[in-house]
């Protein structure tokens, strides 16, 4: 079998198929939240607004799920690759480094795709949400592309090279990011100063783009540029840290 396809196959098995953490935390947790706040705890929401709320909250939970996958699963997987010496093993073989990284990034994107589809299916089957296939597809596709900066945050965290630090950074970044960017509750419920920070977050920007697609509105370019800027900033930071670690030989145990 072609080496690249073999890598994709192995990474799919270990990162997704055999990874209970992925199904429990990246998929089940947002699904439980979604069911809880769109089906069970909906007493204060007028019946006329319920469908819109269920739709909007679905977008939030898709992004929340991708946030968990992109940061926690990516950071933990890459850290595990280092601590298990998988990374070194690959470096010592003729495998080109771009193939090593690309095979992982594709799996991380697939991970987000699976959890997005899973949550959409729950919305369709449980809350009878109806959208055209084109709109569903566009929302999912936009989300997958829009989560690339989040994957880069996961890569950046993994460079801490220490399980305790990685775990701490995961928790310090993921949950505050979900809260202040309005994924758990409407951003308008927060103080103005916090709202202005939340609106700069890539998860808020992505949520806004998805909401525009959902409601057939024109996408605000400001948010697209915002996500591109996040990608550029985190990408540069990752390159600088990797170069520094290589220079200081912090990448070899």
């Amino acid at each position: 079998m072609n080496s690249f396809i073999y890598q994709i196959n192995i990474n799919f098995k270990r990162i997704i198929l055999r990874n209970k953490r992925f199904f429990l935390f990246d998929m089940m947790l947002p699904i439980v939240f979604y069911l809880l706040y769109s089906k069970i705890l909906v007493t204060g929401i007028p019946q006329a607004d319920l469908k819109t709320w269920q739709m909007n909250y679905l977008i939030s939970m898709i992004i929340y799920s991708c946030l968990l996958g992109s940061i926690i699963t990516v950071a933990n997987t890459l850290l595990e690759d280092k601590t298990s010496h998988f990374d070194i093993l690959s470096q010592l073989t003729p495998l080109p480094r771009w193939q090593y990284y690309l095979s992982r990034i594709l799996i991380f994107l697939l991970l987000n795709l699976i959890s997005s589809i899973g949550i959409c299916l729950v919305g369709i089957l449980v809350n009878n949400l109806t959208l055209s296939i084109a709109t569903w597809s566009l929302i999912i596709l936009t989300t997958i592309v829009g989560t690339v900066p989040l994957i880069f945050i996961g890569i950046l965290i993994s460079l801490a090279n220490n399980p305790a630090t990685v775990n701490m950074l995961n928790n310090l970044i993921v949950f505050p990011l979900a809260m202040i960017s309005g994924l758990w509750w409407p951003i308008t419920m927060m103080p103005k100063w916090l709202q202005s920070i939340g609106k700069l977050m890539p998860t808020f920007e992505l949520s806004n783009i998805d909401q525009s697609i959902l409601h057939g509105k024109i996408i605000n370019n400001q948010y697209v540029i915002g996500i591109i800027l996040w990608l550029a900033t985190i990408g540069i930071a990752a390159i600088l840290i990797t170069t520094y670690q290589k220079y200081k030989e912090l990448n070899i145990e």
Binding site: I10, K13, R14, R18, N19, E80, S84, H85, I88, E253
Partner: peptide, 11 residues
């Protein structure tokens, strides 16, 4: 063959 063992989970 490095001094440290390679031990990847779920493979």
């Amino acid at each position: 063959m490095m001094q440290s063992n390679i031990s990847i989970t779920r493979i």
